[in-house]
Each structure stands twice: as C-alpha cells, then as structure tokens.
Amino acid sequence: MARAGVPARAGHRLIGRACYTMQRMPTQVDPAGVEPRAILEAADLRNTRVLEVGAGDGRLTFQYASESNSVVGIDTKQGDILSTAKLPKTDSSRHVHLMCACATALPFSAEEFNVVLLASSL
C-alpha cells in the first residue's frame, strides 16, 4: 500500500490514500475456444493421426489434440516451435509432436495421416 504523497508506480493506481495493484491480463486468443470447437464439429478426430500445417507454438493444437490419437504439428518458424518447450506438460501434450518442416516438402511417408489440418497456411 502506498503512503500519502508517494506517487503510484506504473501499473498501480492511487485511490484516495491507498494504492491498489491493477490486475493485468495476458493477451487472450479465442478464450471461448470457438476455433477448436469449429474444427471438432467439422471432422471426427477420434482414433486419428493428425498433421497440422502452420501449428506455430501449438496454441490451437493443444486444444483439440486429446480428441485424436496423435498430432504432428509443423511450422517453418523454428522460434515458435522452440517456445513450446516452455509449456507445461499436460494430457494433451503427450499426443503432440511439433517440428520444423515445410508444407511443400513434407518429411513423411505416403498415407501416414487420417487428417491434414491447414491452419491458416494456404
């Protein structure tokens, strides 16, 4: 709590004599989970092996992964993929493998996947 006459620091707000910390929220993308729901309504992912092209840091991937048997997410941006190493291990993450690869030269054998998801990558 700030004393009277002490200026509030950035991120704080003086109300009367008290200084309360203002709660900052991180950027939230699709907090209602509309996108994974739309995907799950579009295709039945049960018992499937999924390839997601343009997976980035796996924001979308981890939201539907538990519905499938496994997901391989690829992206050309190595930085995004590396950032997933910082994510907490969850039930979904056990199904997911993210790697750096290009959509036009996929490092996979023929007929490996049941579903290919182009995540804003066409």
Binding site: A38, L51, F108, N114
Partner: peptide, 12 residues
C-alpha cells in the same frame, strides 16, 4: 501423406 478417404481441413 493422407490415407485413402482422409480428411483435409482448411481453416483461415
């Protein structure tokens, strides 16, 4: 890489 009768999903 898709199996026969596999599904392609395009989200954008």
């Amino acid at each position: 890489v898709l199996k026969p009768h596999g599904v392609l999903i395009d989200v954008r």
